[in-house]
Nucleic acid binder design. Structure first.
Lengths: 245, 245
DNA sequence: TTAAATTTGTTCGTATGTATC
DNA sequence: TGATACATACGAACAAATTTA
């Protein structure tokens, strides 16, 4: 607690930013490790010699960074993170990729519908816009934690019943195999990062403002014909990617 | 402006969240396209029938998402984004990778020092901890926009003068070539995402709370000996990655 | 060039609601 | 049930940066 002294007013740097920095440092020093929580807002306000709102601004910034999580009625918890490592290669498969790192893997079908391909989906799948495609919404959990929320499109002609098959197995690889596709390859993966939107926050059990790693990927059959285009959102504090060349 | 009516107090959803959603929708509808800015906070507060602080909370959330950027004295600008695409492969090279997409590329040396390898750096470079390494801090710009901030380590025995050479050419590839390494390969790339810290916010000219894509990568010479370990931070709203398998 | 008006940024005060213990 | 602690909202004042007159 040695560092939680009064804050001097410095020109140019807002009080709440200075306080956020001090709390961040105190956390990384392990000052609050016994309790696993930050002291109550009013206590911090007293120690820093500022109003409680100023402390709240600082804690809100740290919550945005994912360092702490405020829980109404209890206090502000310090968040500890361990990331799953998700390998990306020509033979990327979700279940195999994370399998080693988790005891319990679940693939949950949220919905499955046939719809006409919009221009973007058509482009990725090398189809005419308007061609029927199956849209499959899925959520994956590892050891009970949601690790990805994906939206995948398949040509409907070839993979009409993939929703039902995936619902049973929870694995795209197995579902494709059941529909006669024994093997497939990853052709393109795009990776970007954004803030989570409302729907994903709910599905992935995130705090508002959480960061998502987003992949846009195409899988093809062995002759190079696109069979799947998927947009997958991974909580950035739970997942990282590895590309082994 | 049709949607900017009074907000009803609904149980369960905070006012500022409802307002953030309404402003986000109005922006994506293009309601403010003529000016490129959101109306002043006091105007919004009046239209929504709430206090200015409530509007500020909503705008702060949108700023976190990177949708808007507030500028003191001017107003709150709507941010338009276009991302550079950075390909990652066995032959990843920064300059070649982004070269097509930008007219003007700059590689700036921030500092270059020789230091003993800490355990992590030593592990990635397959050296004994404490072995001298060159640490090179660099900033890269494309068309005047900062696109990456990297910290790279090289075995000092082999690449002692790389700082000076990089300072002249602005290219790691050229610097390595000048030191006798004609070709090299990317062996591992790890990708994660976090919030930017203070130092990177300044160097990359970001707004606080911006998201960074972070790569940890190892390059080796043609016989597989590690020659470079680099941690590179890319602003997520300016860069995305592509892995072509 | 200067001054005023506009607009966002920060801080404090106060009150009330809601969840946890 | 009451105490504690975070969540939301309103009000007021002033600072700082920018634009406009």
């Amino acid at each position: 607690m040695t560092d939680l002294k009064r804050v001097e007013r410095r020109a140019g740097v807002a009080l709440w930013r200075q306080i956020a920095d001090r709390i961040r440092e105190a956390i990384s020093r392990g000052d609050f490790d016994e309790s696993g929580m930050v002291p109550p807002e009013l206590v911090l306000a007293g120690q820093f010699g500022v109003n409680r709102h100023t402390v709240r601004s600082a804690l809100a910034a740290l919550a945005q960074e994912g360092i702490v999580q405020a829980v109404q009625g209890r206090g502000t918890l310090i968040v500890r993170k361990e990331r799953f490592n998700f390998p990306i290669s020509r033979r990327t498969r979700f279940t195999e990729g994370i399998g080693d790192q988790a005891r319990d893997l679940q693939g949950l079908l949220l919905s499955s519908e046939i719809e006409p391909a919009d221009p973007e989906v058509a482009r990725w799948l090398a189809l005419e816009a308007g061609t029927p495609v199956v849209r499959l919404e899925a959520l994956r959990k590892a050891d009970g934690r949601a690790v990805s929320r994906s939206t995948a499109w398949f040509p409907a002609e070839r993979f009409k019943g993939i929703g039902e098959v995936f619902a049973r197995s929870g694995s795209i690889t197995e579902a494709l195999a059941a529909l006669g596709l024994g093997d497939y390859l990853r052709s393109v993966t795009e990776i970007s990062a954004t803030h989570a939107e409302t729907a994903d926050i709910a599905a992935l059990e995130l705090t508002p403002g959480a960061i998502l790693l987003v992949t846009r990927a195409v899988n093809t059959d062995l002759s190079g014909v696109p069979i799947q285009y998927a947009v997958t959102r991974f909580p950035a504090d739970r997942v990282q990617f590895t590309i082994a060349s």
